[in-house]
Design a protein around this nucleic acid. Structure first.
Length: 442
RNA sequence: GGAGGGGUGGCUGAGCGGCCGAAAGCACUGGUCUUGAAAACCAGAGAAGGGCGACCUUCCCAGGGUUCGAAUCCCUGCCCCUCCGCCA
C-alpha cells in the first residue's frame, strides 16, 4: 500500500528464509545452530523489531477493521435512503490515522524482511563442526592416484598449443580463456557426455534456460542480497545479472507455484555458462583455467517432497560421481563443515578430483540440500495430499560436473609424458572415435 | 519501433463503486450408491499474516491516486497476446 516495492520482488511474507514462526518460537535455538557456521544472530535486534511489528500490526488492523465496518454501515444506510452525512462525519480523520500507522507497519516489515533475508540456513545436525575447509571430513575416495615415472605437467603446460590465454586476456581480460581445435572439442565432448548420462541413465530432463536473471531469482536461491559482489550485473535500465550457476534459473522455474504431489520429484539437468566476478579471490588460482570469470557447468537440480530430500542428496551426489567414474578420474567426497557451508545450504558434499599437476584434490562438484530455504524464498510449494494444504518443497542441486575443471583433470591424469593425452573409453564416441590426442607440450 | 487487446483463486473464466474473497466449469476432499472403481448425486474446500483462542487483517499483475468505501474509476510501471515493420 505504501513504500515502493519493485515489481520483481516476491510477495511480502514469502521473503523469509528461516520459518519466521520458528524464529519467534525458538530464537535462541536458531541462534545456537547458526553459531555453528559462524553466524552471529542479533537476538536483541530481532526482538526489538518484532515488538515494533506487533504493535504496528495490531494498530493497523484495528483501524482497518473500523474503517471496514463504518463503510459497510454507510453503504447500508445509503441503500435504505437514509441521510449519510452524520455517519460520514463520524468517520472523521480515520483515514489519515490509518495512513500513519500503516506506514510505520510497512517500514518495520521492510526492516524485518531485510533482517531475515540476511540470515543463512542453519547447518543440519549431521554437518561436522569446523570453521574452514581444513575441517571438512572425507567420506570416501575412489580410483587409483596415478603414479608417473616422469614429472607430471599441469594443464597449462600440456595444452599450451591449444590454450590461448593471451588472446583471451586481449579480448576480455584475465580469468578468461580461449580453447582451440581438439581442446575445444574435448571440452564440448565432455559437456555432451555428461548431459547424455544424466538424461539417459539418471532420469533428468534437459532444460535450456536464460543466462540473465532478475534480482528476485537470485534472492530466491540465496545469492542475493548478501553476495552481490560475486556477480556480474548488466548495466541498463533494469536489474539483471549474469548467472553464477544454472542453479539460479533452473531452481527458480518453480518460483511462485503450487505443484501437484504426483509431479515430484522433478529432476532437471542444464548446461550453461556461469559467470563469477571472483571478487575477493584476487590472488587465488591465477594459474591456468581453474578459476575463471566464465566457465561451463552441467548442473543437476532436484525438486522433491520434504521427506525425500536427504535421500535425494545422496542420489544426486552419486549421479555426479558416476561421471567421474566413467571418466576414470580419481576423486574423493568430503562433507563440508559448518563453517565452510554456503549461505543457503543446510549440508553440502563436495566432490574433489585428483589433479597431478597440483598433487592434490580440487573441487569439481558441490552437491547441497537446501531443505525449504530456497523454496520459502521463492514460494515453491506442492499440494500435500495428506493435509490438502500447500507445503514448501525441498531443493537439491549439484554440479555434474564443472566442465572446465573436468577438462583439466582429464589432461593431467591421462598424460603419458610425451604430450599424448589418452581419451577414456566413455568419451571416445564423442571424440569421433579417437583414443588419444597428441599435444605439443611445453 | 508503430497500432490495438488483455493480466481475477491450483487451472479455465464471469464480475454492477458498498449485498465480492469474488459466479460458473475443471481439478481436489468427504459422503451416498457400488464387490471395488468409474459415472451420477449431495456436501466441503482459495492463499498469506497475526492471535492461546472466539476471531481479526491482507490479497483480483505491481506501485501511486480519487472516495466514508476500489477487483471495479484515474495515473505510472511491468508482463502477455494479435497485427504491421525490422531482424538471427
Amino acid at each position: 500500500m505504501f513504500g515502493g516495492r519493485p515489481w520483481w520482488l516476491p510477495p511480502r511474507g514469502g521473503a523469509a528464509m528461516i520459518d519466521p514462526q520458528t524464529l519467534r518460537r525458538d530464537l535462541q535455538g536458531v541462534a545456537d545452530r547458526l553459531r555453528r557456521r559462524g553466524f552471529d544472530l542479533d537476538i536483541a535486534g530481532f526482538e526489538r523489531l518484532e515488538a515494533r511489528r506487533r504493535s504496528a500490526q495490531d494498530e493497523t488492523e484495528r483501524l482497518r477493521h473500523e474503517r471496514r465496518t463504518s463503510s459497510k454501515r454507510i453503504g447500508a444506510a445509503k441503500a435504505a435512503g437514509e441521510d449519510i452525512e452524520p455517519l460520514v462525519r463520524a468517520v472523521g480523520d480515520l483515514g489519515d490515522r490509518l495512513t500513519v500507522v500503516a506506514r510505520e507497519f510497512d517500514a518495520v516489515r521492510e526492516q524485518l524482511d531485510e533482517f531475515v533475508l540476511a540470515i543463512p540456513n542453519p547447518p543440519h545436525d549431521t554437518v561436522p563442526a569446523g570453521t574452514d575447509e581444513t575441517d571438512n571430513v572425507e567420506l570416501r575416495s575412489w580410483g587409483e592416484i596415478m603414479e608417473f615415472n616422469f614429472e607430471p605437467r599441469d594443464h597449462v603446460q600440456l595444452a599450451a598449443e591449444y590454450l590461448d590465454l593471451e588472446s583471451a586476456a586481449k579480448v576480455a581480460g584475465s580469468r578468461f580463456s580461449v580453447l582451440r581445435g581438439p581442446l575445444a572439442r574435448l571440452h564440448r565432448a565432455l559437456t555432451q557426455f555428461m548431459i547424455d548420462v544424466h538424461t539417459g541413465e539418471h532420469g533428468y530432463e534437459e532444460v535450456y534456460v536464460p543466462y540473465l536473471v532478475h534480482r528476485s531469482a537470485l534472492e530466491g536461491t540465496g545469492q542475493l542480497p548478501k553476495f552481490e559482489a560475486d556477480l556480474f550485473a548488466v548495466d541498463g535500465e533494469r536489474d539483471r545479472f549474469l548467472i553464477p550457476t544454472a542453479e539460479v534459473p533452473v531452481t527458480n522455474l518453480m518460483r511462485d507455484r503450487i505443484l501437484d504431489a504426483d509431479d515430484l520429484p522433478l529432476r532437471f539437468v542444464a548446461h550453461t555458462p556461469c559467470f563469477r566476478s571472483e571478487a575477493g579471490n584476487y590472488g587465488k588460482d591465477t594459474h591456468g583455467i581453474f578459476r575463471q570469470h566464465q566457465f561451463e557447468k552441467v548442473e543437476l537440480v532436484q525438486i522433491v517432497r520434504p521427506e525425500a530430500s536427504w535421500e535425494a542428496l545422496d542420489e544426486l551426489t552419486a549421479h555426479a560421481e558416476t561421471i567421474l567414474r566413467r571418466l576414470e578420474l580419481p576423486y574423493r567426497a568430503v562433507v563440508l563443515c559448518a563453517g565452510d557451508l554456503g549461505f543457503a545450504a543446510a549440508k553440502t558434499i563436495d566432490l574433489e578430483v585428483w589433479l597431478p599437476g597440483e598433487r592434490r584434490y580440487r573441487e569439481i562438484s558441490s552437491c547441497s540440500n537446501f531443505l525449504d530455504f530456497q523454496a520459502r524464498r521463492m514460494l515453491a510449494r506442492f499440494r500435500n495430499p495428506d493435509t490438502g494444504r500447500p507445503d514448501f518443497v525441498h531443493t537439491i542441486n549439484g554440479s555434474g560436473l564443472a566442465v572446465g575443471r573436468t577438462l583439466i583433470a582429464l589432461l593431467e591424469n591421462f598424460q603419458d609424458g610425451d604430450g599424448v593425452i589418452h581419451i577414456p573409453d566413455a568419451l571416445r564416441s564423442y571424440m569421433g572415435g579417437v583414443d588419444r590426442l597428441a599435444f605439443q607440450a611445453t
